[in-house]
Computed example of a mutant assay.
Amino acid sequence: MENKISDRDLSFVVQGNIAIDKDSGENFTRKACESIRRYFPHAEIILSTWEGQDIQDIPHDLVCFSSPIETYSIIRPDGKSYFHTVNHEIITSRKGLALCQRKYAVKLRSDMVFYGEDILKYFNRYEDHATENYCFFQERVLVLPCYNYRRTKLAYPYNICDWIYAGLQTDLLDLFSIPLEDYSSLRIRDGEKIPRVEDNMGAEQYIWVAYLRKKGHLQHFYNRERFSSEEWLDFEKTIAENFVFLSADTMQVNILKSPFASYASRPILSQGLYTNMEWKRLYNSYGGGRIKIVYNPLEDVLYWVFYHLRHSLSSRCPKIHRLCTSAFRKLRKRR
Rank of each mutant, 00 (worst) to 15 (best):
S110K: 11
P297I: 14
R226Q: 15
T325R: 10
L323Q: 15
K107G: 00
I90V: 07
E2P: 05
A240R: 04
R187N: 14
I188Y: 09
D249T: 07
T170E: 15
M277N: 04
R322S: 15
G116W: 08
P77W: 15
L154V: 12
F306Y: 12
G272Y: 10
I119Y: 02
N148Y: 06
I45Y: 01
K292Y: 14
N276V: 08
L331S: 05
R189F: 15
L120W: 10
K4E: 04
F40S: 01
V14H: 04
S48G: 06
Q169C: 14
L175G: 01
Y183N: 03
R334V: 06
Y274I: 05
W232F: 13
S93C: 11
I69L: 07
L120M: 08
N159M: 13
E299Y: 08
C135G: 03
I255H: 10
R316G: 12
E236F: 10
E231W: 15
S285M: 13
R281M: 13
K280D: 06
F123Q: 00
K214E: 05
G25I: 03
E230R: 13
F123N: 03
D9Q: 09
H321Q: 04
I75S: 00
I239N: 01
G272I: 03
P59V: 08
R109K: 05
F227G: 00
F83Q: 10
H129M: 13
Y104Q: 00
I36P: 02
E139G: 07
E44G: 03
H308C: 13
Q169R: 10
K333V: 10
S265F: 05
G202Q: 03
R224P: 14
Q56W: 11
E70Y: 12
L186M: 04
S11Y: 05
E236A: 02
Y147D: 03
P297W: 07
S24E: 02
T250L: 02
R37D: 01
I178F: 10
F28N: 04
V253F: 02
Y283K: 01
L233M: 04
T49D: 02
S270H: 12
L180N: 08
M201Y: 06
L120H: 11
S258E: 12
R30E: 06
I188L: 11
S24G: 04
S229N: 13
S6M: 08
A203P: 13
A105E: 05
F328P: 02
C33I: 12
S24Y: 07
D234A: 07
G288V: 01
A166G: 02
G202C: 09
I178A: 09
Y134P: 06
E241A: 09
Y39R: 07
L120A: 05
N242C: 14
V14Y: 00
Y158H: 01
P259T: 10
Y263I: 09
N242G: 07
A240S: 11
S326A: 09
E230N: 11
V244G: 07
M1V: 14
H60I: 08
L97K: 04
I239P: 00
K95R: 15
I75T: 04
Y307L: 02
K31R: 07
I5K: 10
Y39Q: 03
E198K: 14
S270N: 09
D78Q: 09
P195F: 11
H311E: 10
K31F: 13
I58N: 00
N200R: 03
S93D: 05
Q56I: 08
D57Q: 12
S265L: 03
V106E: 02
R150P: 08
